[in-house]
Every structure is written in structure tokens, then in C-alpha cells.
Write a protein that binds this DNA or RNA. Structure first.
Lengths: 148, 148
DNA sequence: TTTAATGTCTATAGAAATAGTAGAGTTACA
DNA sequence: TGTAACTCTACTATTTCTATAGACATTAAA
């Protein structure tokens, strides 16, 4: 399961992607629209800002904007900065590799092969799907896809 | 990330799959071979027994055995009983469905579609791979596979 | 120049999950 | 009948998750 925080982050970014381009969107606006606790959302957006995903304007008329076009922000990228490593095992993480100290060797580890395939499969989806894809699928998504 | 407990469970089952057929294998034996804390492993095996994955013999000369052939025990099945739902979102779980009360509707949820594809992809791997597959790949797995 | 609206940052806290440990009990073989 | 095994329940320490609180900094507009 992904965390609630990651879910909020993805929904907040979706909200930004659908907001008027160039116009900052306020935390309180996003919170209300997406039913996210406001103070929690503050932290999340701050994280995303520090990670270079969004930019902000302070003071009156302030708010948040996407830093890159929505079709350049992948789900994988967001999950990684919010929830940490995507890999199912520490020894399979590209960004936070850690040896399993209770297993004898990665070549002989019985379960590593299997989860390597899981990791590949999920990465394939997560890094090929962007915030733009998400907001482009309000309903009848499959149909839209097939027709495109 | 899967839990340590699930990792232990899968490794314990692998050990059983490789042990002499018909001969029960002791907890302490599995624990030593796989470097799993013994008391923790007791709990795990008990869980697996209650779930019908393994059977046990008590008393002297006791131990554990697989209840089914190793090639009928899937990774997905084990992960599910040990770690709970495999789905990345509660509203995508086949076995523990729960509505997301903070999202407006599943048809319009921006992120549900995406994670549905993630769930499909991981399920495809996890339910097509068995303990037998795991133990059959000690090294040079790719080569073996291609040759088979 | 003030004021009010906005984001920034750090600290705190309750609840749940994780990863074990402890110990008393039960069973069955030798 | 003893002892080597599994069984079961309870407990605990640590970490993570999901927030909440409040002081601070910045900016636009009055």
C-alpha cells in the first residue's frame, strides 16, 4: 500500500495540473477541493517544493504551481520522494540500495529474482505514467485510450 | 517494501521445498539455515499453518512440511496472508476492499486508474511465480530459463 | 506604511505497525 | 516418563504514519 501522504501528494499535483496555468493555486484551495487536511498538505507541498517538483509564491495572491509540465512529472518520481524507495526489497532499490544482511548472497537469494521482476513491472508503469495522464482520464478512460 | 516477516516466510518455505520430501524439518533447523530469529519464525510458521500452507508434526522428530507441492504455492498467496492486501490502494484490493473515504468517486479518482495498472502488473508476476520457481533458480537463472 | 493573507519551518503527539522476546503449555516419540 | 519438539498468548521497544500547533517570514494591496 502507498501511504496516505503519497496519495495526497498525487492528488494535489493533479489539482495543480488542472488549475489555470500561470496562476498560483492556494494551499487552502487545494485542500478544500481534494479533501486533504490543510496543515498536512502544507508539509507535503513544502516537501515537493524542496524536491523541485513545484514552485511557490509567498504572500498575498501566493500559492503553488507545477515547476514542470504535468506530462513530465511521473508517478514513480513522486512516490519515490514521498514514500521512499519503490523497490520491494532494499537490495533491489536503485536509489537506496542496502544489502540484506540476513541473506547469504544476492546471486543465490531465492526470492530476489522474483521481486526483481516485480520491481521491473511496477517501475515500467510508474515511470511511464504522468500527472497529465492521470488528469486526462476522468471517465471512459479505456475508450479514450483505444481511440487515441 | 515487503516486510521482514514476509521475507522470512518465503525463505522458510523455500527451505522446506528443498528439504527431504516427507521428512519434517525443525523450526530450529530452518532458523539456523536461513538466519531467522527462532522465536519469530515460530510465529510465522504457525501463521502459515493456520492458513493451510504448511502442516506440522509435534513432539520428538516433529517439524514442518509443505502442505502442497512447492509449484502450487505462489508468492502472491504468501504475501497476502503475511503482509495483507497486495493492492497499492485499499479501493483496489480484491480481498480487503475498502472505499477511500477522502476521494469523490472511483470512476473519477485521478490516481486509481494508474494504480490499477500497477496492481495488475504485480499480481501477474506474484501469482505466476511459485516457491518451486524460486528454489529452481540458484544461479545463472536467466540462462537456465532461456534454455528451458 | 500598515495590514492581512499567504507560504515556511520546527516541534509535538497519538495511533498503528513492525520486529522481535518471553514463557507457560501441549504433544508424542523413545 | 522424560525430553524434544510444536503451540499459544502476551508483552515490549522502536519506528512510521498521520496528522496538529504555533511562531515566523514574505508579499500584495489598502
Amino acid at each position: 500500500m502507498i501511504t496516505q501522504k503519497a496519495k495526497y501528494a498525487l492528488r494535489a499535483l493533479s489539482a495543480l495540473a488542472q488549475s489555470e496555468a500561470g496562476e498560483p493555486m492556494m494551499i487552502s484551495e487545494i485542500a478544500a477541493q481534494q479533501k486533504i487536511p490543510k496543515k498536512f498538505l502544507e508539509q507535503i507541498l513544502l516537501d515537493l517544493k524542496h524536491q523541485g517538483i513545484v514552485i511557490s509564491r509567498r504572500g498575498k495572491q501566493g500559492g503553488y504551481l507545477l515547476r514542470k509540465p504535468a506530462n513530465e512529472i511521473t508517478f514513480g518520481e513522486i512516490l519515490r520522494v514521498i514514500d521512499g524507495p519503490l523497490a520491494p526489497l532494499p537490495c533491489l532499490s536503485l536509489t537506496a540500495y542496502r544489502r540484506c544482511d540476513d541473506c547469504d548472497g544476492e546471486q543465490t537469494c531465492e526470492i530476489r529474482h522474483v521481486f526483481a521482476r516485480v520491481a521491473d513491472a511496477t517501475r515500467k508503469v510508474l515511470f511511464s505514467t504522468t500527472i497529465a495522464d492521470a488528469v486526462a482520464q476522468p471517465e471512459g478512460a479505456e475508450v479514450t485510450r483505444l481511440m487515441a
